[in-house]
Amino acid sequence: MTTSALSFPMPSALGSIDQYISAANQFPLLSEAQELDLARRLKRDNDLEAARALVLSHLRLVVSIARNYLGYGLAHADLIQEGNVGLMKAVKRFDPDRGVRLVSFAMHWIKAEIHEYILKNWRLVKIATTKAQRKLFFNLRSMRSQNGEAAHNLTGDEAAEIAKKLGVKTEEVFEMEARFAGGDVALDGSSDEDDEYRSAPSAWLADSAPEPSEELATAQIERLNEDGLRNALASLDERSRAIVARRWLVDEDGSAATLHELAAEYGVSAERIRQIEAKAMQKMRGLLTAA
């Protein structure tokens, strides 16, 4: 069957998550040739029908991945919705000429969106902010669930064993364990319960907002730093400035160019790009320090 003959009807209004999953599983899988043809049409002609076919044929993948995160107490439908956002991002960025199937490429984007959603909604306050903390959060929770350890506090030996398996420090395991155990606390408490109200954080937290004079000083320092960076960039030759900007000043989707991407663009080796970048950064640091 050619891609032009593929039929991807949209289901009518669905009343439940089970109906949605059933509908998603009815969309036909693509052969490698069909997938390549659709992806090339999307990349070459911005063919939205091709993008639609690629997305719909992989909805069952999102359902399968989202099912693995049901233990976080979040709605299955919400997890699937976030995973679908990741799938659409993957379809948009998919390069059919890299020799990788879309299913393999899309898994990273689907999981990334679901992870971000879980970390934002599992608690009012984010439990993990850095990339390392996010990895530890999901690995530790999965490992504790598999070992049946969720019902008791970790011992020193258990934490050390988990730290060894995950390649982190034991202290980091205990810190994340404490975040698991901690609950959300209302800022104001309840005005109906006097004791609770007096012990609420709003009753004893000090105002840490800076004074107007401090805000003005901070703003002035930031302007000086921006001017210094702008002047340091202007001191570089055009190629060095472009490489630094592409490597360190990320674009709208939050991604920076790799050494190999720049090497292909400028027709030199990745090592040569690294050398140019290192020399430019050294020159900029010297100018910023002198300023």
Rank of each mutant, 00 (worst) to 15 (best):
K279D: 13
S4N: 07
A232L: 05
D251L: 01
L74P: 12
A200D: 00
V62C: 11
K89I: 14
A234V: 05
T258P: 08
A50L: 01
V185C: 11
F105Q: 11
G99Y: 13
Q19D: 07
F180Q: 11
E193Y: 06
E196A: 07
A278H: 14
A263P: 01
A50W: 06
I273P: 03
V91K: 13
L233P: 00
Q34F: 12
Y117D: 03
M176T: 00
L36I: 05
R60V: 14
A203N: 04
Y266V: 05
K283Q: 11
S213H: 15
S191H: 03
M1W: 01
R40T: 06
N84R: 15
A159E: 05
H260I: 12
A263E: 03
A209H: 01
E82T: 08
R98N: 12
S235Q: 11
G228M: 11
A219F: 06
F174K: 02
I65L: 15
R239N: 04
Q146P: 10
A24E: 10
A203Q: 01
S22V: 11
D227Y: 08
V91T: 12
R41E: 11
A39C: 14
H260G: 04
P210C: 10
E277V: 04
L87W: 05
L262N: 00
M10A: 04
H152N: 10
G148T: 04
R247C: 01
I21Y: 01
K164N: 12
N231V: 09
R60P: 01
M88Q: 14
N147R: 15
N84E: 15
Y72K: 08
L205P: 01
A181H: 11
I80K: 15
G86I: 13
D253A: 07
M143C: 08
A66S: 14
A178R: 09
D45M: 08
L224S: 08
G156E: 15
E226F: 05
V62G: 03
R134L: 02
